[in-house]
Simulated scan of single mutants.
Amino acid sequence: MSEHILVTGAAGGIGAAICELYAGQARVTAADLRPEPLAELARRTGAAVLAADLADAGAAEALVGRAWEAYGPVDVVVNAAGIYPATPFLEMTAAQWDRVQHVNVRAPMLITAAFGRACAASGRTGSVVNIASGAALRARPGAAHYC
């Protein structure tokens, strides 16, 4: 098991399923904001875990470096983190809008750039998988900040 996969949004949904799929086949580092489901995932899969609030630019930028230093060079980044709150548009605050944009759009960009820099600095290649949603084409009420 020499390949190291870093998965964001790993405490549930698609991120957790990816961690479960690769458990035993690769070294998996699971990152998420939610400590309890992240700890449960680690118990089930043997994944290493890193807590991170990807709405925080510094945490997103530091995530690849933390995984690389703690668990070895990262070969694959899977940006699976995403939040999908329901908030009526006329009640939406700037902070609610920003949190969705920061987690769903800015964090994958920052993580991918950090990964690219780390790969270039070490002379390694890497792969990035960005998980997206069909909501870009199918809006729904309460999801203006997401769709």
Rank of each mutant, 00 (worst) to 15 (best):
L41E: 01
A139E: 07
A23S: 08
L50K: 05
A26M: 06
T8C: 01
G12P: 09
G142M: 10
P73V: 08
C119E: 06
S127G: 14
A80K: 05
L137K: 14
A57D: 14
G46A: 08
P141S: 07
A17E: 10
Y71G: 07
A94N: 11
H102N: 15
G65S: 03
L90F: 13
V77L: 12
A113V: 15
C119F: 13
Q96L: 10
P88H: 11
A23R: 05
P85W: 00
I131C: 03
G46E: 01
H4D: 01
A55F: 12
A55D: 00
V78I: 04
G126M: 06
A136S: 08
V7R: 01
V74R: 02
T45S: 10
R138W: 10
D98C: 07
L50Y: 09
R117Y: 10
W97A: 07
P35W: 00
R66C: 08
I14N: 00
G142Q: 08
W97K: 09
T93K: 07
A59E: 11
E91S: 12
A23M: 06
R34A: 14
V78C: 03
A136Y: 10
E36T: 10
A143T: 15
Y22H: 15
A31N: 04
G9A: 04
T93S: 13
A67T: 01
E61T: 15
D75T: 03
V74D: 01
H145F: 09
A132E: 00
R106G: 07
T87Y: 12
V74I: 12
V64F: 08
G9P: 02
R140W: 12
N79R: 02
L41F: 09
G82C: 02
L50R: 07
T125N: 13
A11E: 05
E3M: 13
A144S: 15
A31E: 03
T112S: 14
V74T: 04
T93I: 09
V28A: 00
A113R: 15
G65H: 12
L6I: 06
V105H: 12
E69W: 10
R124M: 10
T125K: 14
A62C: 04
G9D: 00
G15H: 02
V105T: 14
A10N: 05
A144V: 15
V74G: 04
G116F: 01
